[in-house]
Design a protein around this nucleic acid. Structure first.
Length: 325
RNA sequence: GCCGGGGUGGCGGAGCGGUCAAUCGCACCUGACUGUAAAUCAGGCGGCCUAGUGUCUACGGGAGUUCGAAUCUCUCCCCCGGCA
């Protein structure tokens, strides 16, 4: 009984955060801005590509680019829409590697800062891993130079050898991760080797640090695809190809751009003639984005309790209840 | 009109007498996911059901040959190229 009471107190102490998720092109940003306006919030972007400076059209950054001086934290780059700032945009160069762990740390810092200023944190973005890591408090296995070196060495080995090693050192990961998925197999092995602790034992959750409500815009699949296609056409018209060209010109390696996926991948392939025609590139890009949207939905479907809304009014009334409780 | 080539699943495209409900690619559907995650990877994909070495309808239409046809023959329809 006493335990129960503590748990309730604990729960009440948790910070409330609002999270807007959903597939690309589903209108997350505008929903988030509406909620922020309505409930005195500020936005943290959870988008693994919008963090990069100079990748604007291709990632769909919106609003005016500004620098905001936050107490204790100093100047922060942000984009402002209708007076609402969005943080964690333009925080790294495309040559730097920005990871979930960076996001987790920076978002946590910002949430504290928001709390001090009486702002409700609204997390919006398509990178579901980032959101889950933040909300559920993933303790992410350490990566240091040693681990990176081991990883690079492993990448040169034949897959059979890599699998044999993993089987010996971390049976759980060996069984859990699909053997074709070398990227994840190698990461599990390199962490295990670098730390001498099986990767699978290190994937802990500290539990939810927050009292969280999730929203997503509910859209029929066909309508989603149409919006995606239109958005691609519009952005091409607005100079997205030129943006990628200028990234190439500024010295970002083609392989790096290709590794970003979607617009950066397909446009780079077109600019380097690996995809000969513009029409073909655009078609492939659209289909790739459809597939990406499906992956996002799969993720959410099986692990996130999303309230799917038809319009912002539904989200606003649900949020009002959530904040009042 | 004549001479060639061709009509296969939502699309592209294999198959050219049996092991074909039909290789493969695309679209589409489903799933995995803890320091690259817009990444990386896996499965499904004619209908039906008691879900199976089950059943039905299928390779432009029709008629044949054959134990057996998407595969051979005839005929009709339609496309493409050449000659008129």
């Amino acid at each position: 009984m006493q335990v129960d009471k503590n748990m309730i107190n604990e729960k009440c102490k948790k910070k409330k955060i609002i999270v807007v998720v959903g597939p690309t092109s589903s209108g997350k940003t505008s929903l988030a801005v509406k909620l922020a306006e309505h409930f005195n919030g500020e936005i943290i972007s959870a988008d693994s590509r919008q963090v990069y400076i100079g990748m604007d059209l291709g990632t769909g950054k919106e609003g005016d680019s500004v620098s905001i001086n936050l107490p204790d934290l100093g100047p922060q780059s942000a984009r402002v829409i209708h007076g609402i700032p969005q943080f964690l945009i333009d925080v790294a160069t495309p040559l730097e590697t920005y990871t979930v762990a960076d996001f987790q740390k920076q978002a946590l810092t910002l949430i504290d800062n928001f709390a001090n200023r009486g702002k409700i944190p609204i997390i919006v973005g398509g990178t579901n891993l980032y959101i889950q890591a933040l909300v559920e408090g993933f303790s992410i296995p350490v990566t240091d130079q040693r681990e990176l070196t081991i990883r690079q060495e492993l990448e040169l080995l034949p897959s059979g050898e890599i699998l044999d090693k993993l089987k010996v050192l971390d049976q759980v990961s060996f069984e859990k991760i699909n053997h074709q998925n070398l990227r994840r197999i190698i990461r599990a092995l390199s962490v295990t080797m670098a730390t001498s602790i099986p990767f699978s034992y290190q994937q802990k959750k500290s539990g939810s640090n927050f009292d969280t409500i999730y929203f997503g815009n509910d859209l029929p699949r066909q309508e989603l695809y149409q919006k995606i296609d239109k958005r691609v056409d519009d952005r091409i018209g607005n100079g997205m190809i030129e943006e990628v060209q200028s990234l190439i010109d500024s010295g970002i390696p083609k392989e790096r751009l290709i590794s970003f996926g979607l617009e950066y991948r397909y446009i780079t392939l077109y600019l380097t003639n690996e995809i000969p025609s513009k029409e073909e590139m655009i078609e492939k890009l659209k289909y790739a984005i459809h597939a990406y949207a499906r992956r996002q939905l799969t993720w959410l479907k099986n692990r996130t309790p999303v309230i799917w809304v038809k319009n912002e009014h539904q989200a606003i009334s649900q949020t009002a209840k959530f904040l009042a409780k």
